[in-house]
């Protein structure tokens, strides 16, 4: 396994540089000058690989190899407490996952979570960014309020929100009691509310990210557009409607896609706040994966679940690439 990096990254360090058809004219000139100073392009090729090598090693070892191992062990009854892969299982692990309620429930919960979080994260972040961009004073304050939670550890966030959602005596339930609800439902203890609680926490936690993306997108909109619109007598609202929203379209699609991928990978909030409960009502795929691997000791089955999630995420990411490619082509 330790030999994997050099094998996988391609030709050996000494290989000659040939076929430099893609080199630019400048490169060619530079290269020819090199010949005068140095032994030749072999030197540059060697340097290229040497510069790439450290990254290649960690990249292959800690990113590529785990992917390969994940696929391999998903076909075996690999046990956490045994060395080696264990007996061959064929597609049994996949069959198990694909027929298991918990797996589909976790995927479904991911969808529900996405549905709960995407609209507020997109709309609210957009509104906040547009407004904060227009209001010139107090920017630092809004960034502090909206962005800072995003850079805090999920564990700290979860402790704060678990406390707010404490059944009966927590801030949220107490507020409900004060407003006349005699026995307010415990948010994280009620199957129909638990995911909502996790979603609220997540919106609070991560809105800063989208807020900043939108702020960045807003800076790209040329001022002349607004000036022209203002000359035509367009009000602020009209300007937002006809200039800001359409021009932030790419940012919005990016934000939505990033959010979907983030939802698929959700683990922290659920692990820390509900542990997947009550019942399976907030279980997510990565929760299922880690439980299967580290609590049930079933690495093989957990790998199969990981592979399935991996495939879903890669498909979504590819869709995103495809969309970007298409919109780039259309723009050309």
């Amino acid at each position: 396994m330790s030999t994997a990096p050099t094998n996988a990254t391609g030709p050996s360090v000494d290989s000659r540089v040939e076929g430099r058809a893609d080199a630019t004219d400048l490169d060619r000139r530079r290269a020819s000058r090199d010949v005068a100073i140095r032994p030749g392009t072999k030197h540059e090729a060697r340097a290229g690989w040497m510069f790439l090598l450290p990254f290649a090693i960690v990249y292959v070892l800690f990113l590529i190899w785990p992917v390969i191992y994940m696929f391999i062990s998903s076909m075996f009854n690999t046990s956490l407490v045994e060395t080696g892969l264990g007996s061959f299982a064929g597609f049994d692990n996949y069959r198990e996952m694909l027929t298991k309620e918990e797996f589909w429930k976790s995927l479904w919960n991911t969808l529900v979570f996405t549905a709960f979080t995407v609209p507020p994260l997109v709309i609210l972040a957009f509104v906040l960014a547009v407004l904060a961009n227009r209001v010139r004073r107090g920017q630092w304050f809004f960034r502090l309020a909206f962005f800072v939670p995003f850079i805090l550890p999920s564990a700290a966030i979860a402790l704060i929100w678990n406390f707010i959602f404490t059944p009966g005596t927590g801030l949220w339930n107490s507020l409900q009691s004060a407003l006349g609800n005699e026995s307010p439902s415990p948010v994280l203890g009620t199957p129909s509310l638990a995911m909502l609680g996790v979603a609220v926490t997540t919106v609070w936690w991560t809105i800063g990210f989208n807020f900043v993306l939108y702020l960045a997108g807003l800076q790209d909109i040329p001022r002349e557009l607004y000036e022209a619109a203002a000359v035509d007598g367009a009000s602020q609202w009209q300007q937002i409607k006809s200039i800001t929203i359409p021009l932030l379209g790419p940012t919005t699609s990016l934000v939505i896609l990033l959010q979907i991928i983030a939802s698929l990978k959700i683990f922290d909030q659920v692990y820390l706040m509900t542990g997947g409960g009550p019942g399976l009502s907030t279980q997510v795929v990565l929760g299922l994966v880690t439980n299967t691997a580290f609590t049930d000791y079933r690495v093989g089955a957990a790998s199969a679940a990981s592979v399935l999630l991996f495939i879903v995420i890669v498909v979504v990411a590819l869709l995103r690439q495809a969309m970007e490619w298409f919109s780039a082509r259309r723009a050309d």
Binding site: N77, S79, L80, V81, E82, G86, S87, E96, K100, E101, E102, G189, T190, P191, G279, L280, D296, Y297, R298, A301
Partner: peptide, 30 residues
């Protein structure tokens, strides 16, 4: 909590536990 009937609760538990009952004991290999 009165969020499920006894029958629903027990059926739900059974269907989840059946998966574990069917699964080969990962500790038995050794």
């Amino acid at each position: 909590q009165d969020l499920a009937t006894p029958k629903e609760g027990l059926d739900q538990a059974r269907s989840q536990l059946e998966v574990y009952a069917r699964t080969a004991d990962p500790l038995a290999t050794g």
